[in-house]
Write a protein that binds this DNA or RNA. Structure first.
Lengths: 338, 338
DNA sequence: ACGTTTCCTGAAAACGTTTCCCACGGCCAT
DNA sequence: ATGGCCGTGGGAAACGTTTTCAGGAAACGT
């Protein structure tokens, strides 16, 4: 493999000069520049990322730290980031976290030597220590779906989303509305489900309905657990006529149960989800559209912005939420209105 | 940030020794080792990947180069790789290729200084030059869905898969069977659709049916293009009673057209896809199950194996294909048998 | 007692860049 | 003319590891 000194020799200049043309910095005459460029292409020279990273104290790439990369909403966001960065030459490195140790480990990297030029952190809350180490290292991550002071972020108003979803159900005439969400997460501190539930309560209250705790169920995130929870709700003496699930994955679990119980949706039971992941469209699931892919795209732009002008001036961008009405919601059964 | 010399000082040893305990190589007395370990944790030392990569001439990570990372089958494979590597501490870096230049660029990295410790290449054919540069650099990529001599790969028998799909249709009684696949790809040289079509022809021939070229349509990969093609097929004077689409995405396009034309599936038209991506299950699409996620898992294992014992002894693993019968295929309409 | 091996440790030379600092020539302002 | 600045280029010191080589001490066989 050709190195920078090979190029320098061939072009008859010093390595400094080659470095300068590679990075477009410093002054170099058009003639010299051309000679160097020729030498580079003749030797098919490619700078070594490791060698370049050492003095610059950061690697030419952007890392995405994302919990549970297999779940559909994570996938959509990662896709957005990858696509947003496609026009640049930054490789994207995916750091999956499924256990708290992973988080520790990956954040450690961001605050230290690996220090990628840019980073996106999805749904995770670094500790104060970790944030301090980011600042110290000059890492300037963009947060998606997290509220972190002094850093850039792209987010939605989950509480308002929960409100919208519930309001939709209320407007259809429902009075007994169940909620299925994530169990309070002590490991990672995810907040979205909690906020969505708050919005749900807001909407009930605004409509003069009391938020009966026995209509709320939480559990491990997932289709099966959600089905479990839905079964409990439907076994109630006065079961809800509609269920708001705080993610589409969970809504699908509810749909599973409806089918298994012979309930027709939406005639016997209305279901609304949250996120609008790809399968929601196929299933005709009414849901709150959450621009996941776009959030990745925006995060990518912010990352580039931070890389290009350092200093970490934080920018926040909020994305809009919108109810997408499909076929899983409708008016409640007639006799239920008593 | 603490460096290796800080650790060495604190432990009262030479950097060499610290390096040795970090990498578990060379002999270090238990006592010294413990002192170093203590110093490491007291200083929260983390080696810099760039610095470590420089002398070793490779970066501690594995790269996945994958075309069109947004399409569902690519996603499933990447997930498999990420998950397969989760138990190791290798970051996974995703190199998306959407244009031939990207391929050039990413393969350039693999053969040179970035040289990740491991690599998996999906569906892409490096040129002879590029392969040579891999060998020279000692990169030992694992190929998924590509036939490359002297390298490890995980693959399926696409031709047989095409055969199975078509055979399924024939066994149901279909005689006029359409095929929708990818246009011959001159940019990346993808082969799977072509092979699946060959299997389709094999099956027709084996059943004594002639493979009528006017029942075959190819176009840009995608749901919409596929719909276009399906419309052509269905507009034929004697339209096919069943269509084999060489991917689920394309099968979904066919389903779109069936709905739009008021055709009931499978009463009026049978549709079979290929891949069994996630939405196939939701749609009840009959398809050929292609273990995409598992292919990523296996590739991850192979990569680790190659990293642990260098030398690049190639291993091939073939995955089985299987028809998953759901609700989009059935016997042909009665009058069609003439 | 002496060589030989084995075990542990350290010094120092890479690895391929970037960047700080300095030198040189030409030009402008004084 | 003289001094300073600007545009251009080079020398050399980082950057933080790994690795090669060698050295010293302890253990072993004779």
């Amino acid at each position: 493999m050709a190195t920078i000194v090979d190029v320098a020799k061939r072009a008859g200049v010093a390595v400094t000069t080659v470095s300068r043309v590679m990075n477009n910095k410093g002054q170099v005459s058009e003639e010299t520049r051309q000679r160097v460029l020729d030498a580079i292409s003749e030797l098919a020279y490619r700078p070594s990322p490791a060698a370049r990273g050492l003095p610059r104290r950061r690697l030419h790439m952007v890392s995405v730290v994302v919990p549970f990369v297999t779940n559909p909403s994570a996938v959509a966001r990662v896709q957005g980031v990858v696509h947003g960065l496609r026009s640049t030459d930054y490789p994207v490195s995916i750091l999956d976290v499924e256990r708290p140790e992973h988080q520790e480990e990956h954040f450690g990297l961001l605050g230290s030597g690996l220090r990628p030029e840019g980073a996106v952190i999805v749904s995770l809350h670094p500790s104060e220590n970790q944030l301090a180490s980011f600042r110290a290292a000059g890492t300037c991550p963009v947060f998606i779906d997290t509220d972190v002071a002094d850093f850039s972020r792209v987010f939605v108003d989950d509480r308002h989303g929960g409100f919208l979803a519930t309001q939709h159900l209320i407007q259809l005439g429902h009075r007994r509305i169940g909620f299925i969400g994530d169990k309070e997460d002590e490991r990672f501190g995810f907040t979205s489900s909690r906020l969505r539930r708050r919005g749900y309560r807001d909407a009930l209250q605004a409509a003069g309905l009391d938020a009966a705790a026995h209509f709320e169920r939480t559990g491990e995130h997932g289709r099966d657990t959600s089905a479990e929870l839905a079964r409990e709700l439907l076994a109630l003496p006065e079961p809800p006529t509609a269920i708001f699930a705080s993610s589409d994955t969970q809504a699908i679990g509810v749909l599973d149960v409806a089918k298994e119980a012979g309930l027709q949706v939406p005639r016997d039971l209305s279901v609304i989800g949250f996120d609008d992941i790809e399968v929601a469209g196929f299933l005709g699931l009414t849901t709150v559209r959450h621009p996941l892919y776009e959030s990745g795209l925006i995060a990518a732009d912010l990352v580039i912005e931070h890389i290009e002008n350092p200093g970490c001036t934080p920018r926040s961008v909020e994305q809009d939420l919108e109810v997408i009405v499909r076929v899983t919601t409708g008016p409640p059964p007639a006799q239920s209105s008593n």
